[in-house]
């Protein structure tokens, strides 16, 4: 469980990034953090992986304060978090395999185990056969898949994605969201995705945390009753045709690996669980 307790983050005297945030995210939830640029989405996520400290208030993960964590303990926190960025943050000189292996290298995982796990995850994100390429030889969507593979390779309990599709076109954006949802469903990972992509937000029926000027906004699902399953079915039907055409070319691997999980069908199927959590 993730808890934000009356969190305020200020930069300097006047720059307020977050103000009085009280928030609870249950384990295994998929949550969108929405809001326009500068609303405080990134700051909210940075507080989770201890890249920023709150000015006041506290952030807790499984009851342990992230804000009061000793700097030397931060790496151990981060090993249990997977972070995905808008600009991918991949190492250009290293192959896909080496990039994905990094979180396991830092924990001193034996090489054989690293090789097995990396192969598995690369297949999972649909990059089978591209392990020896360097990021520069891949498309933007593929690069973000590498970043997602790196984020999940250590089997973290929480995955944080900060505008993961900000640099991608609509088709690739949908693929990335499908992948994140798939990983969430497979492993029950808690996923927080900051985005302002309204098409995707409308497509997926997950909890939304809306921010405006650093404050929680009523527009999020937090302040609204969760939509009934029937409504979600309608949403799914409405959103359904939209992403279909662009899925075919690059999704072959994924379909092979997971024949029974049709990404488009998943969110609808999952609604009751999400509503319950």
């Amino acid at each position: 469980m993730i808890e934000f307790k009356n969190v305020t983050k200020r930069y300097g005297r006047f720059g307020t990034a977050l103000e009085g945030i009280d928030l609870t995210i249950d384990t295994g939830q998929f949550v969108f953090v929405t809001g326009s640029s500068g609303a405080g989405k990134s700051t909210l996520l940075k507080l989770l992986y201890a890249a920023e400290q709150p000015t006041t208030g506290d952030v807790l993960i499984e009851g342990r304060s992230v804000a009061r964590l000793h700097p030397r303990s931060v790496p151990y926190l981060r090993r249990n978090l997977g972070v995905v960025f808008q600009d991918f943050k991949l190492l250009p000189q290293r192959t896909v395999i080496e990039n994905v292996a990094l979180p396991l290298e830092v924990t001193g995982t034996p090489r054989a185990e690293i090789a097995a796990r990396v192969t598995e995850v690369i297949k999972q994100v649909g990059l089978k056969g591209r392990g020896d390429r360097r990021p520069g030889e891949l498309s933007g969507g593929e690069q973000q898949r590498v970043a997602i593979a790196r984020a999940v390779v250590g089997k973290p309990s929480i995955v944080i994605a900060d505008e993961p599709t900000g640099n991608l076109d609509a088709a690739l954006t949908h693929e990335i969201f499908e992948l994140l949802v798939k990983l969430h469903e497979q492993d029950g990972t808690t996923v927080l995705v900051a985005t302002h992509d309204t098409v995707e937000l409308d497509h997926w029926n997950f909890r939304r945390i809306a921010l405006r000027d650093g404050r929680l906004e009523p527009g999020g699902t937090d302040s609204l009753p969760l939509p009934p399953p029937a409504g979600a079915e309608v949403m799914k039907a409405a959103a359904g045709p939209e992403p279909e055409p662009e899925d075919e070319p690059e999704d072959e691997d994924e379909d092979e690996d997971e024949p029974d999980t049709d990404p488009d069908a998943d969110p609808g199927d999952d609604e009751p669980d999400e509503a319950a959590s």
Partner: peptide
């Protein structure tokens, strides 16, 4: 620098 930043983000300790 970039590599060091990424190492930190994936949980690498100072001495790693």
């Amino acid at each position: 620098r970039d590599e060091l930043e990424i190492i930190q983000l994936v949980g690498g300790t100072r001495w790693f």
